[in-house]
Amino acid sequence: MLALSPRIWSVGLATLGTIVSGPTLVGCAAEDSVPQRELVVAAAASLNVPFDLLAADFERANPDVEVAMTYGGSSTLAAGIVAGSPIDVFASANQTTMDFVADSGLAASSPLVFAANRMAVALPQQNRAGIEDLADLSADGVAVAMCQPEVPCGEGAATVMDRAGIELVPATYEPDVSAVLTKVRTDQVDAGFVYASDVVTSGGGVSDIPIPPELNTTTSYPITSLADTTLPELAARFVEFVLSDVGQSILVQSGFLPRSQG
């Protein structure tokens, strides 16, 4: 039924050839250096920037180790871990999600708070909707994106609006905070609930309006190595590194609060 022309097939096969041969070449190059151990770290989407830096630093300190980062909504990652995804370290954006993993008996030791974050309202650079405070978000024709209520950033957004006593129907619930940030950066929405760190790490891509401190919430980020890891010692070392002074300064530079404030 899908009668593709011979030319399409040949292009398709050529592409497939490139894809198949690609990793092989990389594999050969890697064998020339040191045999690699791969540490898989699953982290909340909001940790993307600092954890890429942390992973690079950790690799530099441990040349035989490759850190594979996987980012996503905390609860999506937790669901994956509970379903048996081969992950060595888990960094969550809230305690509830971490508890879900720990209560399933999957945390190697009791999770430790390594950072904290506050909510922020990110605006596209133009701010065409002229948003100045939280009340403006519920105005007619203002499109707001927030995380789905199931993930921590969605919970945080709901708490802020609740405390402000403003009823808000968003234009969309996104699967994680990165998706919200993308919607703001690409000017698809007039505002989006993200973390304070996201505004810092966007590198000027978005601006924000202040949330009064008494309305804002602080989320704590817990981390743990997982019970099923095949590299328990290495996983524990990565957790230690995140909690170390070097790790903490990377997180603070990315707009997070240090663990002492979590």
Binding site: A145, Q148, V169, P170, A171, T172, Y173, E174, P175, K183
Partner: peptide, 13 residues
């Protein structure tokens, strides 16, 4: 759908 239309119960979910 999720990329272009987003997700809002009753409207685009």
């Amino acid at each position: 759908t999720i990329t272009f239309a987003g997700s809002l119960p009753g409207v685009t979910q």
